[in-house]
Simulated assay, not measured.
Amino acid sequence: MKTVIFGNSGSGKSTYAKSLAEQTACPHLDLDSIAWDPTATTPTRRPLQDSAARIDAFVQAADSWVIEGCYADLLALALPRATDLVFLNPGVDTCIANARNRPWEPHKYPSPEAQNANLNMLIGWIRDYAERDDEFSLAAHRRLFDAFAGRKREFTSNDRGTGALGHR
Rank of each mutant, 00 (worst) to 15 (best):
L48E: 11
Q23A: 12
C95V: 08
A52Q: 15
W36N: 12
F6H: 02
P47W: 12
S51V: 10
I55N: 07
A82G: 12
C95T: 10
I34C: 02
Y71P: 05
I34L: 11
A52D: 07
E68R: 05
S9T: 15
A72M: 14
P47R: 15
R81I: 05
F6S: 04
P47F: 08
T41N: 11
P43E: 07
Q23P: 00
S11K: 07
D63W: 00
W36H: 07
L29C: 03
S9K: 08
D63T: 14
N89F: 08
D50E: 15
L74M: 12
I34V: 14
G10W: 04
T41E: 11
Q23K: 12
P90R: 06
L75D: 10
F87R: 06
P90M: 06
L77I: 12
G91S: 02
L88T: 06
H28E: 01
L77T: 14
W65P: 00
F58W: 05
D30L: 08
A72G: 10
P90H: 09
Q23F: 00
S9A: 15
D30Q: 15
R54V: 09
S9H: 03
A25D: 09
A21M: 00
L85H: 04
A17Q: 08
A25I: 04
P43T: 04
L88R: 04
A52R: 15
L85A: 10
Y71K: 03
G10K: 10
L85V: 13
C95R: 01
V66N: 03
D73F: 07
G10L: 05
A72W: 12
G69Y: 00
Y16N: 04
H28P: 02
D63V: 03
S51A: 14
L85R: 01
S64F: 02
T41H: 08
A57C: 01
A76T: 08
K18D: 03
T39S: 11
P27K: 01
A61T: 10
P43A: 11
A53R: 10
P43L: 09
D37W: 03
A25K: 11
C26N: 03
I96E: 08
F87V: 04
G91R: 02
A53Y: 13
A17C: 14
Q23M: 04
F6V: 05
E68Q: 13
L77V: 14
T94G: 12
E68A: 14
L29P: 03
C26D: 04
H28R: 02
D50K: 11
T39E: 13
L31I: 10
W65R: 01
A35I: 07
Q49L: 15
G91A: 06
L48F: 15
T39W: 04
Y16Q: 10
T83W: 08
P27I: 00
V66R: 06
L20P: 06
L31A: 11
N8L: 00
V66Y: 01
L48W: 14
T83A: 09
I96G: 06
T42W: 10
A78R: 06
G69F: 00
F87D: 01
L31H: 01
V59R: 04
K18T: 15
L20S: 04
S33K: 12
G7S: 06
T42Q: 11
Q23D: 09
I67P: 00
D30T: 01
T83F: 02
V59N: 05
L29G: 02
P47L: 15
I67F: 00
T44K: 14
C26V: 01
D63C: 06
R46I: 07
T41R: 15
P43D: 09
V86I: 13
